[in-house]
Computed example of a mutant assay.
Amino acid sequence: MAATTRDSLPNQIIYIRDSSVTNSIRALRIDVHAHYYSDRFIDLIESRGCDCGACVRRDARGPIIDAGPLHAGPLASRFIDLDQRIADMDAQGVDVQALSLTQPMVYWAEENLARELSATFNDDLVAAHERFPDRLVGLAMLPMHHPKSALDELARVKAAPGIRGIYMGTAIGDMDLSHESLLPVFEAIEEAGLPVLLHPLKVLGMTDRLKPYFLANLLGNPFDTAVAAAHLIFGGVLDRFPKLDVVLPHAGGALPFLVGRLQHGWSVRPELKHMERGPEEYLARFYFDTIAHSQSSLQYLIAQVGADRVMLGSDYCFDMGLERPIEVVEAQEQLSDTLRDQILGGTARSLLKL
């Protein structure tokens, strides 16, 4: 990426010279939803994970991680190999990726192993950033099911090179995000000025009604994102931590399309009388990625929350992701060039402090 800064607008859009097109200037493109597994993280699960219920199988196509109902793999080399990742980013036209773990994360492990797994992955994020400082940043993993260890790991990595946010499941094991034990960690994350980016993990119904037909992903992921957001709203987490930024994956899942139902419930149900404001007002507290798999759905999201709350995402490199994420945004013809550039990178640059 040949990055020659031409202008920095108040909305944090940065323009760079595109080396692939002569005399072309375009906005910096930042992918906030891109997954990464390091060799050391996988090896640590393989050597010690089985005692806690997570095992690694080796396959010619790549390693496979099984942790109870959670399954990852075969993990193709592009999940692990940074050189291949950079080549893929170049082919996509993506300038920067924010690297994140995904299932099984670390919440299945006992405390010492969970902290070691988190530290190993986080150190590998730092190493990836130091190798490609203009291309890769990291979203740190914390052993949230052991809050004291989560606080210790946060203190260790919050200022580490390239760490630009915290990655977290939409639930922590069987705990919802409004669980009281998690509040000190959210407080420390807010004080550190880091955003929280969520991802579905152990989703509702994945072992029964959503088990067939890949429904645990197709339906479970967007449902679970909406459930997590509802707990943050109704459980008072967003009120308690007014400066905490939260990013919802997969275009917010079901939340943007069901927020009217939540709003109506708030107006009539006694279970929600503790809320001074309705759920619709909390949409502005969230950020969203572009992984809607529908141009009309993405257009609806942008119209509902504003282009300044939506950021480029690919879900690299799962088959449920977007192989051409830039084209998805460019196809939103109702957007001005400035708003399109805001989605492609302006908002992410501000949120991740790049």
Rank of each mutant, 00 (worst) to 15 (best):
F186Y: 14
R209Q: 10
M206T: 01
L238E: 05
F223V: 10
V185A: 11
R269A: 15
R269N: 15
V203G: 01
R269K: 15
G193W: 03
M206S: 03
P222M: 02
A188P: 03
N217D: 11
I189L: 12
N221K: 02
L197K: 02
G193I: 03
P270F: 13
P195H: 00
T207C: 10
H199V: 03
L232P: 03
L215D: 02
E190K: 07
L194D: 06
A228L: 09
G260I: 07
A229K: 05
H274N: 14
N217F: 04
D239I: 01
V247N: 00
A226H: 10
P195K: 00
H274W: 11
L215Y: 09
E271C: 14
G252V: 04
E191Y: 12
V259A: 06
D224G: 04
G205K: 00
A216C: 14
L219C: 05
L244Q: 08
E271S: 15
P200K: 01
S267N: 06
P249L: 02
P200D: 02
L204P: 02
D224H: 05
F186D: 10
L201M: 14
P195W: 00
F241W: 09
Y213N: 13
L255S: 13
L258A: 13
T207W: 00
T225F: 09
F234L: 11
A228W: 04
V237H: 04
L198V: 07
K202R: 15
L238H: 04
P256Q: 11
H231C: 08
R240F: 12
R269F: 14
A251T: 03
P249D: 02
F186H: 12
D245K: 15
A229R: 02
E191T: 12
G265Q: 06
Q263C: 10
H199S: 05
K211Y: 14
